Amino acid sequence: MRIDSFSVDRYVSLMRSCLDTRDVKSGKSVHSLLVKLNLRVGIFLCNNLINFYGKNGLVEDARRLFDEMPERNISSWNTVISMHAKCGQLGVARKLFDGMPERDSISWTAMIVGMNLSGLHEHAIGLLLEMIREGVVPTQFTFTNILASCAALGDLDTGRKVHSCVAKFGLSAYVSVANSLLNMYAKCGDQEVAQAVFNSMRVRSISSWNSLISLYAQSGQIEQARELFETMSDRDCVSWNSVIAGYNQQGFDLQALELFVQMQNHHVRADSFTLTITITACANLEFLKTGTQLHAYIIKFCSILMVPLEMP
């Protein structure tokens, strides 16, 4: 029995709802109903089923569906390639990728993302070169991953070349790309260009500010880092951590603890990195009582220290 267009939309909506809520049981029930009613599932609905299984980690179920499809489109291939790549099964993903009748930017980017996740950053960069040689235009998502590879490798020379490609393809205005450029230059230690990228951004996210603050803090320019920090209209845990760590690294342990107290007062959730820094600051200052309070908090696995810190 063929499903009419109304039914297809209804089933797709059900599958997406199950995916959004990570409701595996209900998603499998919908699939079982389709099989039980002997309904002929078209490519669009089948792709949604594959996506549902893949994103819930049910790789074998997703792959079985893909293998049984009498007809596939490029989205079918991309979904299953992305699934294998993100699971670290790069050999399987590459075999599928090489066997595709046609590839688009999503296909290439899926492989690049998988290589990045597996730490194969040089291979990811090499795949970008193949992509461009094949005449496929990279997207902002491609470049954010490639710039992450350059940052991980500390490869400033390649990062600069990628920056030129970003400009050539007119993608510099995307906030995600600008943030990736800023992060790459910051991680590679090019403060001047990082600042220039930051200054040129029409729209900045918290990540933009954090990258530059971290660069200044790690390079010993803690006053500049604090000045940027105070300029931010909104801050997250990373923002606070960057400055607290900067103070700690420069030996300003009391200032690190004072900023941690401010972090509490602003109701920002501390993480393990925050606590590691503050415990270190307590040890350096020989603040036993404050360190004991922090230790008690860590043991209880609370999300934030609720009692005021008492510092001598």
Rank of each mutant, 00 (worst) to 15 (best):
V92S: 12
L96Y: 11
P70S: 04
M100Q: 00
L90P: 07
V80R: 02
R94F: 08
S82A: 15
V92G: 02
P101C: 10
N78P: 04
T79C: 13
P101A: 05
N78I: 02
S82V: 05
I106E: 03
D104T: 00
M83T: 14
N78W: 10
V92Y: 14
V80Q: 11
L96G: 08
N73E: 09
L96T: 01
H84D: 14
M100V: 00
R72Q: 06
S76C: 08
D104E: 00
V80D: 05
L96S: 11
V92W: 10
S105T: 13
D98L: 09
R72K: 14
D98F: 07
I106A: 12
M83R: 04
L96R: 06
V80S: 07
D104Y: 00
S75I: 15
D98V: 05
W77T: 05
G99K: 15
S75Y: 09
M83H: 00
D104V: 03
A85F: 04
V80P: 04
G99S: 15
E102F: 06
Q89K: 11
I106T: 13
S75H: 09
M69P: 11
S105L: 11
K86A: 09
W77V: 00
R103I: 08
P101M: 12
R103G: 11
V80A: 06
P70D: 06
E102A: 15
C87S: 12
C87A: 15
K86T: 10
M83P: 03
S82N: 14
E71W: 01
L90T: 03
D104P: 01
K95Q: 14
Q89M: 15
M83C: 15
E71N: 06
